[in-house]
Design a protein around this nucleic acid. Structure first.
Lengths: 354, 354
DNA sequence: TTGTAGGCGTTATCAA
DNA sequence: TTGATAACGCCTACAA
C-alpha cells in the first residue's frame, strides 16, 4: 500500500490533501459536531490515505491536558497487577485516558524513579500499585491514588483489599472445616500483619462463641488449652513474604507445634513454600494438613496447585482506584479517602475437613 | 520544601532564575561541554530550586528524535517478558533510550493496537515480544525487531531462542537418564512445533548411534520396537499450549502408551498440566514418570514445583534484541538477520534416572 | 461552519 | 561561550 515514506504525515499534510484548514482537521479529530459532513468525510479520507496519526507530543504540548496517567508497579514479577490493570482500564481508558505502566526498575538510569519519568510526561495523575516505596517523591500538586497496599502517603486516596476481613475469612473457613489447631506463616509486610490480625480475631471470636477459652499466641507461647478449643499459633519471620519464608516458617511451626492441622500463609507464594515444607516432612495436603494462601494469583488457580486462597479482587480495586483518581483530578481539593474492598474466599483442593 | 505549586516550571523559569538565556539552559540540559562552570552551576541550582523537569512532549517535538522505544508484549500474564525487559534495559536504556511497555490489551479502546499508540508517540523503534499478532500493522519505515518467537514480519530482525536445540537438549537429558520410551505433549504454536522437531531429531540420533532402529512417531503409530530402542510418541493437540493442553494431552498419551516414562512438555505451564494429569492417575513424579518443561519460568524455579526445564535465556534475547534495534535505527538499510540464542538445561527435581 | 493567528516548552541554527 | 529566533505539530481563541 504505502511506500516506505520516512516522515510521518502532519496535520498540515492532511489539511492540504483534504483542501481545508488545519483547524478544521483538528475539529474533526476532536469529533466536533460543528463540521459539515462533506468536509468531515474529506478529512477522514485524507487521514486514511496519508496514514496520519496525531503526535501525542504535539497534542499534549498544545492542549491543556496530557490525557495520560501513570501506573507505578512495585515489580512486574508480582502478577497481581494484571487484574488491577484491567480494572484501571475500565475506569480510565474509556474516559479517554492513556495508561502508561512502569515498574520500579524500568527506566532506572534515566530517571531516579519511575515517578520522575511520569512527571516529565506531565501525567494528569498517578496510580501507585502496592506498597509504595517511601522515597518516591511526588509533588503535592499531582493527584495520586494508592491501589492495594496501605497509604504511605497521607495525602493520597487509597483503595485496597480488606486484609483484616480476609484474614478473618481464612480462619473461619478452616474452623468450619473442623480444624482447631491453626497455624499462620507470614513475614515482614503491612499486608501480612493485617491478615494475621484478622485471622487472630476470628480465632478469638470462635472461642468466645463456644464459651470456652480460645487463645492465639505466638510460637513459644505456653498454655495448654483443652483439646476442643480453637487455638492459633503464628510464625512471623523478619523477612519478606516469599516462598522461602513460607517454607522456613512452616518447618518451624510444625517443629514446635506438630498438632497443627491447617496453615494459613500470608500470600500464595508463601503458601507454596508451606506446601513444599509439608511435603518435605512426608505429610500430605490436604489429608494431613490444609493450606491456604492469599491473593488468588494464577499459581493458586493453576490446576496443578489448586490452592485455596483469598481473592483480593484486584479488578475491583483497579476500577475503584481509577474512578477515584478521576474524581481527584476533577477536584484536587478532595479530602483523601480510604476504600476497602471486601475479599472473597476461593476454596480449592488444599483445604479439607478433618 | 516546595509549596504545592500548580504549574510545572519551564525552561524559561529556570533561565530567569539563573539569569541566563533559555538556550544556555538547554545546553546545560544536554550536558554540553561548551558551558562555563559558573553558568552551569547557576543553572543547575535553579533547576533544583524550581524542581524543574523538562517536558518530554516538548523535547520530542522540538528535537529530532523521541529517544523512546516501544515494547509490545503479547500478554502481561506471560512472565517471560520480565527477564526480556532486563536485557532490553541493559542495551537500550543505557544509551539514553526510554522504554515504554504495553501488552496487547493495555490501551485497547483508545488505539486499535498497542503499535498505534507507539506510532503516535513517534517511537524510534519497536520491539515485538513473542509471537507477533499478524494484524499489527507496522509501517515499513519503523525499525522493528522481534524478540522471542519467529518473525511473522519478513523485514524484521529476529532474536530468539533456538527451540530446535532446546528440544534436542530435552530429549538428550532424558535419554541420558536412561529413559527409552519418551513422550511429548504440545499444542498449536510455532515454538511447540520447533521444540517437538528438535526432540524428534535427538531421538533419531540416539537410535542411529546405538546402531538400532529408532523411531519417533505420533500417537496411533504402529510398530513395536525392541525394548531397548529409544522411541518417542508425541501428542499435539489443536489448541493453545496451556495447562489444560498439558493435562488432556498427557492423559491421552498415557492412555495409549502406558510404557512412557518421561514426558517433555512444550512449555512450563503445559508441564504443570502434565504433572497434574500424572498425579490424577496415581503416579508420582519423578519416581514413575519424569517431566520436563520449557522456558524456565518462575513457576518452574519455584521450590514447590522444582520443574526441570530448558532456560530460553530471555535476558540474553533482550540484550541481543536491544543491540540489534540500535543498529537498525542507525542504519535502516540493514538486511534483516535472525539470531538464535542457545538455550540451557536446568535440571531440577522432576526428572530422575530410571 | 470554516479560516487566521498565537502559543505550548524545547531544540536547533545562526550570530554575536 | 552565550543569546536571539525560527521551527516542531497541534490546540484554541477569535474572526470571518
Amino acid at each position: 500500500m504505502t511506500m516506505g515514506n520516512t516522515k510521518p504525515a502532519t496535520i498540515y499534510d492532511v489539511a492540504a490533501r483534504a483542501g481545508v484548514s488545519k483547524s478544521l482537521v483538528s475539529l474533526v479529530l476532536q469529533r466536533s459536531p460543528r463540521v459539515s459532513e462533506q468536509r468531515r468525510a474529506a478529512v477522514l479520507a485524507a487521514i486514511q490515505e496519508l496514514d496520519y496519526r496525531p503526535s501525542t507530543a504535539a497534542v499534549s504540548l498544545a492542549g491543556t491536558r496530557s490525557r495520560t496517567i501513570g501506573v507505578v508497579l512495585d515489580d512486574f514479577r508480582n502478577q497481581w497487577f494484571v487484574d488491577l490493570l484491567t480494572g484501571l482500564r475500565e475506569a480510565l481508558q474509556d474516559q479517554g485516558h492513556r495508561l502508561v505502566v512502569a515498574d520500579r526498575f524500568l527506566n532506572t538510569g534515566l530517571d531516579a524513579s519511575p515517578v520522575e519519568g511520569f512527571l516529565s510526561m506531565r501525567v494528569e495523575g498517578l496510580v501507585i500499585a502496592g506498597e509504595p516505596d517511601t522515597d518516591l517523591a511526588i509533588p503535592a500538586s499531582t493527584p495520586v491514588v494508592v491501589a492495594g497496599g496501605r497509604a504511605a502517603l497521607a495525602r493520597a486516596d487509597t483503595v485496597a483489599n480488606d486484609d483484616l476481613a480476609g484474614g478473618r475469612m481464612a480462619a473461619e473457613h478452616l474452623i468450619e472445616l473442623g480444624h482447631v489447631r491453626l497455624g499462620f506463616v507470614g513475614g515482614h509486610s503491612a499486608a501480612s500483619d493485617a491478615r494475621l490480625e484478622g485471622w487472630r480475631s476470628a480465632i478469638d471470636a470462635a472461642g468466645a462463641r463456644a464459651g470456652r477459652t480460645a487463645s492465639a499466641g505466638v510460637v513459644g507461647a505456653t498454655g495448654a488449652a483443652a483439646s476442643t478449643d480453637v487455638t492459633g499459633v503464628a510464625v512471623v519471620l523478619a523477612a519478606d513474604v516469599t516462598e522461602e519464608t513460607g517454607s522456613a516458617g512452616t518447618h518451624r511451626l510444625l517443629d514446635e507445634h506438630p498438632e497443627v492441622t491447617a496453615v494459613f500463609a500470608a500470600n500464595d507464594v508463601t503458601a507454596l513454600g508451606a506446601m513444599s515444607a509439608i511435603a518435605e516432612r512426608g505429610l500430605r495436603v490436604p489429608e494431613d494438613i490444609s493450606v491456604m494462601g492469599y491473593d488468588d494469583t494464577p499459581i493458586a488457580a493453576s490446576r496443578y496447585v489448586g490452592l485455596t486462597s483469598i481473592d483480593d479482587r484486584s479488578i475491583d480495586i483497579g476500577r475503584g482506584a481509577g474512578v477515584r483518581l478521576l474524581e481527584r483530578i476533577a477536584d484536587p481539593g478532595l479530602t483523601p479517602t480510604e476504600v476497602l474492598v471486601e475479599p472473597r474466599l476461593v476454596a480449592r483442593r488444599t483445604t479439607a475437613a478433618r
